[in-house]
């Protein structure tokens, strides 16, 4: 921090990050302008969707696409709830069921897929055991091999295990403890001091107690970051749902499935209302926890 002194008094401490030469000031002014235009361009389509979700179909077809609705059709949101559906074979899945599926998918998948790498990351960071190097090398190796086209094999194995298109699929497939998240947790726990654990050991604490009472709480900030990022990603997931859980569509999968029908069936404004439904939870989640999401994440250590 550089101090700004005026009349012998420190009036403000200026970070080295904001100290600029004249040339840099111009550069960052241009950057600001470019970033602003890009930000507006990213927000604009979403605002446009929200505005048009309140229009009647007739107004949307005939009116000015940029204009505010002449009559705000709040009923579109009710209609979206009633009309947006997902056709899976002979079954028609209503929107309410898609919401339930989404919540189930997010809660189960997110919790397990954040907790398992935390556990493996902790164990690999803090313990020495037989086979550690081999397992770590295999984990890194499997990250290094660019496997392509395993979808077909995955479906066959899921069918064999009777997990394909069942709610249990989410529990089982989320339990992978090796991957990029494992590396992040591993490097995180490497930097956590072991002295608390040693003190607890002297007091007679076992390994489980040390993990659950001392180490897990220390990993919680990063864990919650992954939970929130994972919840947003899970809420918006549709590709793997279409492939492996076709009878349990989430909202995103349902909207994807419905997009072509929107033109002829309920009309686009109602479809837009569905898009807004899909956006709201993620935006609320992000607004509440942006400080956790935008916290420092670190990755590294592919050297096995």
């Amino acid at each position: 921090m550089a101090k700004v002194v005026y009349n012998g008094k420190v009036i403000k401490e200026q970070s080295v990050l904001t100290q600029r030469t004249k040339g840099e000031k111009i550069f960052f002014a241009i950057v600001f302008a470019v970033f602003l235009i890009q930000s507006i361009s990213l927000f604009f389509p979403l605002i446009w969707v929200v505005l048009n979700s309140f229009k009647s179909f007739a107004e949307y077809r005939g009116g000015n696409t940029f204009s505010f609705p002449k009559v705000w059709e709040f009923a579109n949101y009710l209609k979206a709830f009633e009309q947006l559906e997902y056709g899976a074979g002979d079954r028609v899945i209503p929107f309410a069921e898609m919401i339930f599926n989404t919540l189930y998918y997010v809660v189960v998948c997110d919790t397990i897929s954040a907790f398992t790498p935390l556990v493996t990351g902790y164990v690999f960071a803090k313990y020495r055991f037989k086979g550690k190097t081999l397992i770590f090398s295999l984990a890194i190796f499997s990250m290094m091999i660019p496997t392509v086209g395993t979808t077909a094999s995955m479906i066959k194995i899921l069918n064999f295990l009777q997990l394909y298109d069942t709610p249990l699929y989410v529990w089982v497939t989320a339990a992978g403890g090796f991957g990029a998240t494992f590396l992040v947790f591993s490097s995180y726990y490497k930097n956590v001091s072991w002295s608390y654990a040693e003190a607890a050991m002297i007091d007679g604490a076992g390994h489980y107690t040390i993990f659950f009472k001392i180490m897990l709480p220390q990993g919680l900030p990063l864990f919650w970051t992954y939970i929130i990022i994972g919840a947003i990603a899970g809420w918006n997931e549709y590709y793997s749902i279409l492939l492996y859980l076709p009878n349990y569509p989430t909202i995103a999968a349902g909207l994807f499935n419905y997009k072509d029908k929107a033109y002829r069936k309920s009309g686009l404004p109602i479809f837009f209302a569905g898009l807004v439904y899909s956006m709201i939870p993620s935006i609320i989640l992000f607004s509440c926890f942006s400080d956790k999401i935008l916290v420092s994440l670190s990755i590294g250590g592919l050297k096995g």
Partner: peptide, 20 residues
């Protein structure tokens, strides 16, 4: 603000952003 704006596509999700 820019951090949030650039992260926006990840927040609202691929399907919403793409369909919009």
């Amino acid at each position: 603000f820019f951090e949030i704006a650039f992260y926006l596509p990840s927040i609202v999700g691929g399907v919403v952003m793409e369909l919009a």
